[in-house]
Protein backbone atom coordinates (compact mmCIF):
# COMPACT_ATOMS: atom_id res chain seq x y z
CA UNK A 1 0.00 0.00 0.00
CA UNK A 2 2.98 2.30 -0.22
CA UNK A 3 3.19 2.79 -3.92
CA UNK A 4 -0.32 3.23 -5.17
CA UNK A 5 0.13 7.00 -5.38
CA UNK A 6 2.73 6.62 -8.16
CA UNK A 7 0.16 4.76 -10.19
CA UNK A 8 -2.55 7.25 -9.30
CA UNK A 9 -0.32 10.10 -10.40
CA UNK A 10 0.60 8.42 -13.66
CA UNK A 11 -3.01 7.52 -14.54
CA UNK A 12 -4.35 10.97 -13.70
CA UNK A 13 -1.71 12.71 -15.73
CA UNK A 14 -2.61 10.29 -18.51
CA UNK A 15 -6.18 11.59 -18.47
CA UNK A 16 -5.17 15.23 -18.40
CA UNK A 17 -2.25 14.97 -20.84
CA UNK A 18 -4.60 13.60 -23.48
CA UNK A 19 -8.04 14.91 -24.47
CA UNK A 20 -9.93 12.01 -22.83
CA UNK A 21 -10.19 13.57 -19.39
CA UNK A 22 -11.42 16.93 -20.69
CA UNK A 23 -13.90 15.34 -23.08
CA UNK A 24 -15.46 13.16 -20.40
CA UNK A 25 -15.72 16.05 -17.95
CA UNK A 26 -17.17 18.35 -20.62
CA UNK A 27 -19.74 15.79 -21.71
CA UNK A 28 -20.74 15.20 -18.10
CA UNK A 29 -21.16 18.92 -17.41
CA UNK A 30 -23.16 19.51 -20.58
CA UNK A 31 -25.50 16.60 -20.02
CA UNK A 32 -25.98 17.16 -16.29
CA UNK A 33 -26.31 20.91 -16.70
CA UNK A 34 -28.76 20.71 -19.53
CA UNK A 35 -31.08 18.20 -17.90
CA UNK A 36 -30.97 20.03 -14.60
CA UNK A 37 -31.48 23.58 -15.79
CA UNK A 38 -33.99 22.82 -18.50
CA UNK A 39 -36.49 21.97 -15.74
CA UNK A 40 -35.07 24.13 -12.97
CA UNK A 41 -37.03 27.31 -13.71
CA UNK A 42 -40.26 25.39 -14.31
CA UNK A 43 -40.13 23.94 -10.80
CA UNK A 44 -39.26 27.36 -9.49
CA UNK A 45 -37.58 25.95 -6.36
CA UNK A 46 -34.13 26.79 -5.01
CA UNK A 47 -33.05 23.15 -4.63
CA UNK A 48 -30.48 20.79 -6.11
CA UNK A 49 -32.79 17.81 -5.81
CA UNK A 50 -33.29 17.26 -9.51
CA UNK A 51 -29.55 17.44 -10.10
CA UNK A 52 -28.91 14.67 -7.60
CA UNK A 53 -31.79 12.62 -8.97
CA UNK A 54 -30.09 12.63 -12.35
CA UNK A 55 -26.61 11.81 -11.10
CA UNK A 56 -26.86 7.99 -10.71
CA UNK A 57 -28.02 7.56 -14.31
CA UNK A 58 -25.41 9.91 -15.74
CA UNK A 59 -22.67 8.35 -13.61
CA UNK A 60 -23.74 4.90 -14.83
CA UNK A 61 -22.47 5.87 -18.26
CA UNK A 62 -19.74 8.40 -17.57
CA UNK A 63 -17.79 6.49 -14.93
CA UNK A 64 -17.48 3.24 -16.88
CA UNK A 65 -16.27 5.43 -19.76
CA UNK A 66 -13.48 6.69 -17.52
CA UNK A 67 -12.53 3.34 -16.05
CA UNK A 68 -12.87 1.25 -19.21
CA UNK A 69 -9.29 1.79 -20.29
CA UNK A 70 -7.60 1.37 -16.93
CA UNK A 71 -6.95 -2.35 -17.27
CA UNK A 72 -8.22 -3.21 -20.76
CA UNK A 73 -5.65 -1.03 -22.43
CA UNK A 74 -2.81 -2.44 -20.39
CA UNK A 75 -3.92 -6.00 -21.04
CA UNK A 76 -4.29 -5.26 -24.72
CA UNK A 77 -0.90 -3.64 -25.31
CA UNK A 78 0.83 -5.93 -22.85
CA UNK A 79 2.06 -3.08 -20.67
CA UNK A 80 0.46 -4.84 -17.73
CA UNK A 81 3.53 -7.05 -17.89
CA UNK A 82 5.73 -4.03 -17.20
CA UNK A 83 3.91 -2.94 -14.11
CA UNK A 84 3.40 -6.49 -12.87
CA UNK A 85 7.12 -7.23 -13.02
CA UNK A 86 8.05 -4.13 -11.07
CA UNK A 87 8.18 -4.36 -7.29
CA UNK A 88 4.53 -3.38 -6.78
CA UNK A 89 1.82 -5.55 -5.29
CA UNK A 90 -1.38 -6.22 -7.15
CA UNK A 91 -3.24 -4.39 -4.38
CA UNK A 92 -1.17 -1.28 -5.06
CA UNK A 93 -1.99 -1.43 -8.75
CA UNK A 94 -5.71 -1.88 -8.13
CA UNK A 95 -5.95 0.80 -5.42
CA UNK A 96 -3.98 3.22 -7.60
CA UNK A 97 -6.33 2.75 -10.51
CA UNK A 98 -9.42 2.85 -8.31
CA UNK A 99 -8.23 6.09 -6.75
CA UNK A 100 -7.88 7.46 -10.27
CA UNK A 101 -11.59 6.81 -10.81
CA UNK A 102 -12.45 8.60 -7.57
CA UNK A 103 -10.22 11.56 -8.40
CA UNK A 104 -11.82 11.84 -11.83
CA UNK A 105 -15.27 11.75 -10.23
CA UNK A 106 -14.22 14.58 -7.93
CA UNK A 107 -12.81 16.49 -10.90
CA UNK A 108 -16.19 16.22 -12.63
CA UNK A 109 -18.09 17.34 -9.54
CA UNK A 110 -15.97 20.35 -8.64
CA UNK A 111 -17.25 22.54 -11.52
CA UNK A 112 -20.84 21.73 -10.54
CA UNK A 113 -20.27 23.49 -7.21
CA UNK A 114 -21.12 26.57 -9.21
CA UNK A 115 -24.75 25.40 -9.27
CA UNK A 116 -25.49 25.54 -5.53
CA UNK A 117 -23.52 28.77 -5.27
CA UNK A 118 -25.56 30.49 -7.96
CA UNK A 119 -28.82 28.97 -6.72
CA UNK A 120 -28.16 30.29 -3.23
CA UNK A 121 -28.39 33.79 -4.70
CA UNK A 122 -31.77 33.02 -6.26
CA UNK A 123 -33.48 31.70 -3.21
CA UNK A 124 -33.15 30.13 0.19
CA UNK A 125 -31.07 26.99 -0.52
CA UNK A 126 -31.03 24.26 2.11
CA UNK A 127 -27.33 23.28 2.31
CA UNK A 128 -27.90 20.00 4.17
CA UNK A 129 -29.11 17.99 1.17
CA UNK A 130 -26.46 19.66 -1.00
CA UNK A 131 -23.60 18.57 1.23
CA UNK A 132 -25.17 15.12 1.64
CA UNK A 133 -25.60 14.94 -2.13
CA UNK A 134 -21.96 15.65 -2.82
CA UNK A 135 -20.79 13.13 -0.22
CA UNK A 136 -23.18 10.60 -1.74
CA UNK A 137 -21.97 11.46 -5.24
CA UNK A 138 -18.38 10.70 -4.24
CA UNK A 139 -19.41 7.41 -2.64
CA UNK A 140 -21.47 6.55 -5.70
CA UNK A 141 -18.56 7.50 -7.98
CA UNK A 142 -16.28 5.26 -5.94
CA UNK A 143 -18.67 2.32 -6.11
CA UNK A 144 -19.15 2.73 -9.86
CA UNK A 145 -15.39 3.11 -10.35
CA UNK A 146 -14.83 -0.21 -8.60
CA UNK A 147 -17.45 -1.82 -10.84
CA UNK A 148 -15.99 -0.23 -13.96
CA UNK A 149 -12.53 -1.33 -12.94
CA UNK A 150 -13.72 -4.88 -12.53
CA UNK A 151 -15.33 -4.79 -15.98
CA UNK A 152 -12.09 -3.41 -17.39
CA UNK A 153 -10.04 -6.19 -15.84
CA UNK A 154 -12.21 -8.82 -17.52
CA UNK A 155 -11.42 -7.99 -21.12
CA UNK A 156 -8.81 -6.58 -23.44
CA UNK A 157 -11.50 -4.73 -25.35
CA UNK A 158 -12.36 -1.29 -24.00
CA UNK A 159 -15.78 -1.19 -25.69
CA UNK A 160 -16.80 -4.44 -24.03
CA UNK A 161 -15.45 -3.15 -20.72
CA UNK A 162 -17.57 -0.01 -21.09
CA UNK A 163 -20.78 -1.82 -22.01
CA UNK A 164 -20.34 -4.35 -19.24
CA UNK A 165 -19.55 -1.69 -16.64
CA UNK A 166 -22.42 0.54 -17.73
CA UNK A 167 -24.83 -2.41 -17.72
CA UNK A 168 -23.99 -3.28 -14.12
CA UNK A 169 -24.17 0.36 -13.00
CA UNK A 170 -27.50 0.99 -14.75
CA UNK A 171 -28.83 -2.22 -13.23
CA UNK A 172 -27.89 -1.10 -9.72
CA UNK A 173 -29.34 2.35 -10.34
CA UNK A 174 -32.63 1.18 -11.78
CA UNK A 175 -33.34 -1.91 -9.73
CA UNK A 176 -35.13 -0.03 -6.95
CA UNK A 177 -37.38 1.61 -9.53
CA UNK A 178 -38.61 -1.77 -10.76
CA UNK A 179 -39.59 -3.35 -7.48
CA UNK A 180 -43.06 -3.96 -8.85
CA UNK A 181 -41.69 -6.82 -10.94
CA UNK A 182 -40.32 -8.72 -7.97
CA UNK A 183 -42.14 -11.00 -5.49
CA UNK A 184 -43.22 -9.18 -2.34
CA UNK A 185 -40.87 -11.18 -0.06
CA UNK A 186 -37.80 -10.15 -2.06
CA UNK A 187 -38.66 -6.47 -2.34
CA UNK A 188 -36.80 -5.37 0.79
CA UNK A 189 -33.63 -7.21 -0.16
CA UNK A 190 -33.68 -5.98 -3.73
CA UNK A 191 -34.37 -2.44 -2.71
CA UNK A 192 -31.38 -2.63 -0.40
CA UNK A 193 -29.22 -3.80 -3.31
CA UNK A 194 -30.06 -0.76 -5.41
CA UNK A 195 -27.44 1.95 -5.56
CA UNK A 196 -30.17 4.46 -6.51
CA UNK A 197 -32.04 3.79 -3.27
CA UNK A 198 -29.03 4.43 -1.04
CA UNK A 199 -27.98 7.45 -3.00
CA UNK A 200 -31.44 8.97 -2.65
CA UNK A 201 -31.24 8.55 1.11
CA UNK A 202 -27.92 10.35 1.34
CA UNK A 203 -28.92 13.09 -1.08
CA UNK A 204 -31.88 13.93 1.14
CA UNK A 205 -29.25 15.02 3.61
CA UNK A 206 -29.62 11.98 5.85
CA UNK A 207 -26.22 10.37 6.25
CA UNK A 208 -26.97 6.91 7.54
CA UNK A 209 -24.25 4.34 8.24
CA UNK A 210 -26.30 1.73 6.38
CA UNK A 211 -25.94 3.68 3.17
CA UNK A 212 -22.25 4.32 3.72
CA UNK A 213 -21.65 0.65 4.46
CA UNK A 214 -23.53 -0.24 1.30
CA UNK A 215 -21.27 1.88 -0.89
CA UNK A 216 -18.12 0.75 0.87
CA UNK A 217 -19.10 -2.88 0.39
CA UNK A 218 -19.74 -2.36 -3.32
CA UNK A 219 -16.28 -0.79 -3.61
CA UNK A 220 -14.69 -3.63 -1.70
CA UNK A 221 -16.50 -6.30 -3.71
CA UNK A 222 -15.62 -4.64 -7.03
CA UNK A 223 -11.95 -4.31 -6.15
CA UNK A 224 -11.75 -7.79 -4.71
CA UNK A 225 -13.29 -9.22 -7.87
CA UNK A 226 -10.81 -7.19 -9.91
CA UNK A 227 -7.98 -8.80 -7.99
CA UNK A 228 -9.33 -12.28 -8.66
CA UNK A 229 -9.88 -11.48 -12.32
CA UNK A 230 -6.29 -10.26 -12.71
CA UNK A 231 -4.96 -13.31 -10.97
CA UNK A 232 -6.65 -15.53 -13.52
CA UNK A 233 -5.57 -13.35 -16.44
CA UNK A 234 -2.08 -14.78 -16.28
Amino acid sequence: MRQFHHILKKECSGYFASPIGYIVIAVFLVVAGWFFFSAFFIYDQASMRNFFNLLPVIFSFVIPAITMRLFSEELNTGSYELIATMPVTRTDIIIGKFATGVVMTAAMLVPTLAYPLSISFLGDLDWGPVIGGYIGALLLGGAFSAIGLFASSLTRNQIIAFILGAAICVGLTMINKMLIFFPAEAVDVIEYLGAGYHFENISKGVIDTRDIIYFLSIMFLGLYATGISLQYKK
Binding site: Q3, H6, I7, K9, K10, S13, G14, A17, S18, T77, G78, S79, E81, L82, I83, M86, P87, V88
Partner: peptide, 21 residues
Protein backbone atom coordinates in the same frame (compact mmCIF):
# COMPACT_ATOMS: atom_id res chain seq x y z
CA UNK B 1 8.47 -3.48 -25.33
CA UNK B 2 4.84 -2.51 -24.74
CA UNK B 3 5.11 0.95 -23.25
CA UNK B 4 2.50 3.61 -22.63
CA UNK B 5 2.50 5.26 -26.01
CA UNK B 6 1.11 8.60 -24.86
CA UNK B 7 3.75 9.21 -22.23
CA UNK B 8 6.93 11.14 -22.86
CA UNK B 9 10.11 9.11 -22.52
CA UNK B 10 11.21 11.30 -19.62
CA UNK B 11 7.85 10.99 -17.85
CA UNK B 12 7.75 7.28 -18.37
CA UNK B 13 11.23 6.72 -17.01
CA UNK B 14 10.58 8.99 -14.03
CA UNK B 15 7.45 6.98 -13.32
CA UNK B 16 9.45 3.75 -13.43
CA UNK B 17 12.08 5.28 -11.15
CA UNK B 18 9.41 6.36 -8.65
CA UNK B 19 7.75 2.96 -8.64
CA UNK B 20 11.16 1.36 -8.25
CA UNK B 21 11.57 3.39 -5.09
Amino acid sequence: SPFYRDMLVYDYLSYVAAVRG
